[in-house]
């Protein structure tokens, strides 16, 4: 089924893209949000190989999601893409070594339940 293939592409590219972005952006130090700051981020995207791959992943994920929405109902597409949410939080703890305490974990689970309910 094409929808499972698209879903697999979405999950893999979203998780990879977000992890790489988070890692690389932390490495670059706190960025400013004015025009110059955003311009600097654009330059970072083109000058750092890993960051370019991360953004490419986001683009693939975006187009795969558009294709999924046209091949399957939103009630499948939205909760399925919420799976990335759990995976990313776990990997943020394991790979990025972020501290995911009780409050953060419970909050993330509440959001996940909410997203699944919203799509029904």
């Amino acid at each position: 089924m094409i929808k499972w293939l698209l879903l697999a592409i979405i999950v893999i590219t979203t998780v990879l893209g977000d992890l790489v972005q988070s890692y690389e952006m932390k490495r670059s130090g706190a960025q400013r949000v004015d025009a110059r700051g955003l311009g600097r981020i654009v330059r970072l995207i083109f000058s750092r190989g890993k960051l370019s791959i991360g953004i490419l992943c986001m683009a693939v994920s975006f187009f795969a999601f558009m294709a999924l929405v046209q091949n399957a109902p939103l009630s499948f597409a939205v909760p399925a893409s919420a799976a990335t949410f759990v995976l990313e939080t776990v990997l943020a703890k394991l790979v990025l070594k972020e501290v995911v305490g009780m409050r953060r974990a419970v909050g993330a689970l509440l959001v996940l339940c909410g997203v699944v309910l919203l799509a029904r």
């Binding site: 949410f85 939080t89 943020a92 990025l96 972020e98 993330a108």
Partner: peptide, 8 residues
């Protein structure tokens, strides 16, 4: 900010 903060 943390990824596990930004996402939720």
């Amino acid at each position: 900010a943390d990824l596990s903060f930004v996402l939720p």
